[in-house]
């Protein structure tokens, strides 16, 4: 599918989606609550069949957080970037996609570890890099660590 076709496909599924054509990929920003439905459809529909999640990351914006999914289809060779926008910045939560793309299990744990994004229904949501008893979410913009982070 071309980017235009993808755009129509996604906006049919999720009317709240906002699009932006980046230098490489089609970016679609949606509400986090609609992510699960969209992800399932993108994965399972034969027209799209996005079976390869090559990057998953959290981003901290001043008012909200986004979880960015870079998706690619090995069959049709097209790619799309889905950005799930959470409502609440302090307690963000998104549905998990780790049952659709198994690699997401680790990547979601990473996003949880650094940003404190809760992935609902994740099978094993624990910190992955940092120690279990650490407090705070070190990649958030307002995280303060006067000893280890020197702001300049």
């Amino acid at each position: 599918m071309t980017n235009e076709e993808l755009q129509t496909f996604i906006s049919n599924l999720d009317s709240t989606a906002e699009f932006e054509e980046g230098p490489q990929y089609l970016n679609a920003t949606i509400e986090a609550s609609g992510l699960r439905k969209l992800a399932e459809e993108l994965k399972n529909n034969d027209q799209t069949s996005f079976d390869y999640l090559f990057c998953l990351t959290g981003v901290d914006w001043p008012e909200f957080m986004t979880v960015v999914y870079h998706l690619k289809s090995t069959q049709h060779n097209h790619a799309v970037v889905i950005k799930a926008k959470t409502k609440d910045r302090e307690n963000p939560n998104v549905d998990t996609v780790s049952d659709l793309w198994q690699t997401a299990e680790f990547h979601e744990r990473e996003a949880y570890d650094f940003y404190g994004i809760i992935f609902n229904n994740h099978p094993d949501l624990r910190r992955i890099f940092l120690e279990d008893d650490r407090e705070g979410w070190p990649m958030r913009k307002d995280f303060e660590d006067p000893i280890n982070i020197i702001d300049y």
Partner: peptide
């Protein structure tokens, strides 16, 4: 299928 799903490259 698993290799793609796990993102093994």
């Amino acid at each position: 299928e698993d290799a793609i799903s796990f993102g093994c490259t």
